[in-house]
């Protein structure tokens, strides 16, 4: 029986297309992920909590001298601290979120420090409240910038 001969050209084309198909399947599964996926909900939560912080301090600045006692604002402090802890917890459980966790941890530490200063001294001057608010907005900014940057990841 005469054996069938495969044309060399056909053999080469088949071999080439198999190599290319293999390469294509490898490339299909190779997307680089260096950062977490963006979350619109988390961005909204960050914006809202930063607003709550600003509102708290503006209310205290606006209040008369005898209405700046810590007890009048403790609920608001706790509400904001709860939001910060929630944002921290979400990011601690997100893959590749080390940078964000670092920023939120610093924010959490400083918010608690400023809150405790108010609690210890019972009232703060307007100058102190203005300075604290400016710093807290500066601590919120990187957290928001980080989440917004994730929306640009492809």
């Amino acid at each position: 029986m005469k054996s069938r001969q495969v044309s060399p050209r056909l053999f080469l084309a088949t071999k080439t297309s198999m190599v290319l198909l293999f390469l294509l399947s490898v490339l299909n599964s190779c997307q680089v992920h260096l950062v977490p996926s963006y979350s619109a909900d988390l961005e909204a939560q960050i914006v809202n909590a930063a607003k709550m912080t600003d509102k708290l301090y503006l209310e205290m600045i606006d209040a008369p001298a005898d209405k700046k006692n810590y007890a009048l604002y403790s609920d608001q402090y706790i509400a904001i601290e709860t939001e910060i802890h929630s944002i921290l917890l979400i990011n601690q459980n997100r893959d590749k979120a080390k940078d964000i966790v670092n920023s939120v941890t610093i924010l959490s530490k400083k918010f608690a420090e400023y809150k405790d200063d108010h609690k210890k001294r019972d009232t703060l001057s307007n100058g102190e409240l203005i300075a604290y608010n400016a710093d807290l907005q500066a601590f919120w900014a990187p957290v928001l910038v980080e989440e917004q940057a994730l929306s640009k990841a492809r």
């Binding site: 997307q31 680089v32 992920h33 260096l34 950062v35 940078d99 964000i100 670092n102 920023s103 610093i106 924010l107 530490k109 400083k110 710093d135 500066a138 601590f139 900014a141 990187p142 957290v143 910038v145 980080e146 940057a149 994730l150 640009k152 990841a153 492809r154």
Partner: peptide
């Protein structure tokens, strides 16, 4: 502390850039 937090943000943005370029 503010600077440290800002540097973390810059690091993350750089990673977004690197990811986009690689993909």
């Amino acid at each position: 502390d503010i600077l440290q937090s800002e540097l973390s943000a810059i690091a993350l943005i750089s990673k977004v850039t690197a990811q986009n370029a690689a993909n």
